[in-house]
Design a protein around this nucleic acid. Structure first.
Lengths: 151, 151
DNA sequence: TGGGCTGTTGAGAATGGCTCTCAGAATGGT
DNA sequence: ACCATTCTGAGAGCCATTCTCAACAGCCCA
């Protein structure tokens, strides 16, 4: 009795002519279950108890496949580790609060002019970007009594 | 007879209470000589012929020190490899070509609206940001015959 | 100027994330 | 159901990076 959610994942997995396998579904569900970025190792451990025969290499392959088909995004973590996050729609970028560590999603429309500018002024075709803003979120800003405006 | 350039590098190397060593100067000069991002391995090989006793680990350590003191910036390359680029001043953002590895500085004025937008729409006070774009530079784009526009 | 404290280096081994290999198993079109 | 094709499990292999530690070299101070 596949859930509606599993159905949708299955559709996306096979959308590029890829085969639907139990392993891919397991990995996709596990990844989609969390809202934070997970490394392949972590995901492997998280899933292992229920699926003892699942191999680590398979997790890597499944994640790679998800990234390729746009179901997930690969992020870089310190120490040359990749972390993955499920993506419903277009990927987004983050505002990381250096005080409370909370992460907000960046309003993507803000970026459009930048990408266009890079294209127009530099003739540069952006493939992917690394884009993280660190600072104080609204709450912490109030708490800190900061009246600083943006630079 | 240290050149003016070497003098300036030396000053920056020691600026954080770090010791000035031949090895650090060699690495700093080699990195500053190029305008494209270089991996530690590449830099090591580039420098090895003139300095056969220089160890790879030392190159890694010197690059790490440069990153920490703001003389260089670490970029990500495919396959979990770090690449480094010398930074003249504080905090530039980069356009890194994934094909020829050349690095352009981003026209900073493009960013102004983004920072304003983050401030206005998210109430988020940006302290610092990490912002690198990866893609095809104008030359490689022509070479590739790409007619793709920006997303 | 000459210790001496301490940061730094060289060399190679160790680490660890990730990928490869390959035989056997599973998938999906026909 | 058949079969070409794709996937998987298991572990070995790969390779960028880091660690270890004894020897060495800056730099501070008298």
């Amino acid at each position: 009795m596949p859930t509606k959610h599993a159905q949708r994942l299955a559709t996306r997995i096979t959308s590029r002519g890829r085969r639907l396998t139990d392993q891919r579904l397991i990995v996709a569900e596990a990844l989609a279950a969390g809202k934070e970025a997970v490394s392949a190792q972590e995901l492997y451990e998280r899933v292992r108890s229920r699926n003892p025969r699942l191999a680590l290499a398979t997790v890597y392959r499944a994640l790679e496949a998800q990234v390729e088909s746009g179901m997930a995004r690969r992020l870089e973590r310190r120490g040359h580790v990749s972390a993955y996050i499920a993506c419903d729609v277009e990927h987004h970028h983050h505002l990381v609060c250096v005080r409370c560590q909370k992460v907000e999603d960046l309003d993507e429309t803000i970026l459009k002019p930048v990408l266009r500018g890079i294209n127009d002024r530099h003739g540069f075709a952006v493939e992917h970007e690394r884009l993280d803003f660190y600072g104080l979120c609204a709450a912490c800003r109030r708490a800190a009594g900061s009246t600083d405006s943006v630079r």
